[in-house]
């Protein structure tokens, strides 16, 4: 027993300093998570494999970043959020409020988001804008499609994982939600194949955090489906905002809780408007080029 008992209490650090340090700590925990390392490896491999000249449309390649960075990223942040639950009796009486801890977890999503940005640049390197694989979309719309299919899901999936981890106790909830989303996207994509010109089907297809915009019909043609990729990105970003607000609502009290609830009553309305505009915008019918 050589330890001293000298009090060494820190000055009450500003909340921002603690938040920055905590966010950095959570990012480090996320980055060394085996699921995330698997995600990065698979995303890099599928992007590299997708550079092949035999690729005739983007949708044979684009789901992978969304699946890995978004879907598996969601499971990783879900695990990260839940990991401290057993220690809540200790963690819950520290000066760092639950909302600050949740916000620090949300910042973790920056890591897969940056990975998504890198993937986007790699994809554009392999398939420059204007390439026939994008179908009839204009060059700016082609970038919007890629942002909505690669970058935003990489941000939104991990944010959804944090929100889920804050509210749901079931340990397999992340995987179950991943299966549900995967099943829904598959179902509405099949519907879009049979009803490519239908507005309701277009809205249904876009009523998801990920959506296909093109279909490779035969050896030569790529069909661009209905829907505005710009407004779809707006819808996705609104979903991201909802995920953050729902996560922060857990443990919020007083004025902060009032503000979150107030914002939560506005953002879903904006999301619905974006969804309707996304479904009704863009091409008025499927265009094959």
């Amino acid at each position: 027993m050589s330890a001293t008992l000298a009090a060494a209490r820190p000055e009450a650090a500003a909340g921002r300093t603690t938040f920055v340090a905590l966010a950095a700590r959570e990012m480090r925990r996320f980055v060394v998570n085996p699921v995330f390392l698997f995600v990065v490896g698979m995303t890099a491999w599928t992007t590299w494999a997708g550079r092949s000249p035999s690729v005739t449309e983007i949708d044979t390649v684009n789901p992978y970043p969304a699946i890995f960075l978004g879907g598996f990223g969601m499971m990783a942040t879900f695990w990260l959020t839940r990991s401290m639950r057993a220690s809540e009796p200790v963690v819950g009486v520290t000066p760092t409020a639950l909302s600050a801890r949740t916000a620090a977890l949300c910042t973790v999503a920056v890591v897969p988001f940056l990975c998504g940005c890198l993937t986007l640049f790699a994809f554009l390197h392999f398939h420059p804008v204007g390439d026939s694989v994008y179908g009839a979309f204009s060059p700016p719309a082609q970038v919007a499609v890629l942002v909505g299919q690669i970058v935003v899901p990489s941000l939104g999936g991990p944010l959804l994982g944090v929100a889920l981890g804050c509210w749901v106790r079931f340990p397999g909830a992340g995987f179950v939600l991943f299966l549900i989303l995967y099943g829904w996207v598959s179902l509405v994509t099949i519907l879009s194949m049979s009803h490519p010109d239908s507005t309701p089907v277009a809205v249904l297809r876009l009523f998801a955090p990920f959506a296909f915009f093109t279909l490779h019909g035969n050896a030569a043609d790529v069909t661009a489906w209905r829907g505005s990729p710009w407004f779809f990105t707006g819808w996705q970003l609104a979903l991201c905002a909802i995920a953050v607000l729902v996560a922060l609502l857990r443990g919020a009290e007083g004025r902060a809780r009032f503000r979150i609830i107030g914002t939560l009553s506005v953002v879903p309305v904006a999301a619905v408007i974006m969804l309707v505009l996304a479904g009704t915008g863009g091409f008025t019918h499927a265009v094959t080029a």
Partner: peptide
């Protein structure tokens, strides 16, 4: 507390260090 659960994979140092961070030892 009477019962404390620990997160998977944490060492003793890492756990106490994490709590110290939450206690504003930045």
């Amino acid at each position: 507390p009477q019962e404390v659960g620990f997160p998977r994979g944490f060492t003793a140092f890492a756990f106490v260090d994490y709590i110290a961070l939450l206690k504003e030892w930045t």
